[in-house]
Design a protein around this nucleic acid. Structure first.
Lengths: 197, 197
DNA sequence: AGACGCATGTAAGGTGTTACATGATTCT
DNA sequence: AGAATCATGTAACACCTTACATGCGTCT
């Protein structure tokens, strides 16, 4: 049972899903591919943590809709109460930003543009998901046992994170375009964020 | 040349460092261990992208201080101008948050406490790094070619990110403690953030 | 006509983590 | 007395990504 296996159980604990669905949903905040998911689902089924129903479709490939079992829920319970590993973060863009001081303005501008465009695309994608979720549940997230509460919490944070990413790009551009040496102490990102309101 | 190899070159482009230093610095925003770094440094040296000087020490193990070569800088230049891969994110805590609606209040509270404590520890660590950086350079980050400009940009973002993480924990607790069904539409994380000021 | 979405799966190769290995000094 | 810091390195295993494989329907 690796982390992704628990992740699959976590998602299946709220609704029955196919491997394909799981891939799409997980990708909002957990980098993975279908090739990693399908073998793990087969393992979970062998261990009796999930069961599946084969749904025959026409025009589309048949699909397996997975559901969590009582065994699966019991394993989930143990996992959620045990210590949590640190997050794995590997953002190539950050490695590039680290060394930008050695490059010319044109190269830097191009990089910041690339980064901002990426954040903007993510914002559109995650805002859409959040809106869909809100309308599907009728915006009732008023208790910790509300339907899809966890999904709601995470989407709210991700949307906020990418918005801050966009502001960060703007802040960097502002710093780069300041040629005077005055106000050296004022270049604080959080002050910049507050000044926007 | 994988992403971490470029990362090592990126860090070495701003100052000479040992493998151990690189591990510590990278860990602020790139999950890795020394076991991954040392073999890559050896490869970079074979390819003539870096050179090292052996420094003999007493009381401590000898160390190899690596410097980037002109070849290395040329490779960096090509890399920074080429398309950037998507960030890899794998946060076990988010997988746990996803399924919290199925658990009792005590389990949820424990999990949110664990998460907030983690963010708080990170805040202390990264704030210290930022303060050290500021004092070492004399707070002069007024141009994009300023010394350690990239490092400054990233630390500013990370500090902001973890602060938002802490507020997110508080927001979740607030939602969980609301038992009434009133004001269902008001539970927006960004509105919550704005209300703090 | 070609790309994309739906939907599942395997194989190969690259990447990453954990454990093993050493050892003096400093902190708790 | 035991843990942490500094400092490097290897080996085994686990993990993850890319490519291969299939195939119909819809969109551009």
């Amino acid at each position: 049972m690796n982390k992704l296996s628990y992740g699959l159980l976590s998602f299946l604990s709220t609704e029955p899903l196919t491997g394909y669905d799981l891939m799409l949903k997980l990708n909002h905040f957990w980098s993975t591919t279908h090739s990693a998911i399908y073998p793990l689902l087969a393992e979970l089924e062998e261990k009796n943590y999930v069961t599946f129903t084969l749904i025959e479709q026409n025009g589309k490939p048949d699909k397996k809709v997975y559901e969590i079992t009582d065994n699966g829920r019991s394993v989930l319970k143990d996992w959620i109460s045990s210590p949590t590993d640190e997050a794995v973060r590997k953002d190539e863009m950050m490695l590039k930003i680290y060394c930008i001081q050695g490059f010319d303005k044109a190269t830097i501008d191009k990089l910041i543009d690339e980064m901002e465009n990426r954040y903007k695309k993510q914002l559109i994608k995650h805002t859409e998901s959040l809106e869909k979720l809100k309308s599907s549940v009728g915006n009732k997230f008023n208790s910790c046992n509300a339907q899809r509460f966890g999904s709601y919490l995470i989407l709210q944070k991700i949307v906020c994170d990418v918005k801050i990413g966009i502001e960060w790009c703007k802040w960097i551009r502002m710093l780069c375009n300041k040629n005077d040496g005055i106000n050296c102490l004022d270049h604080n990102f959080q002050d910049f964020l507050k000044s926007l309101e």
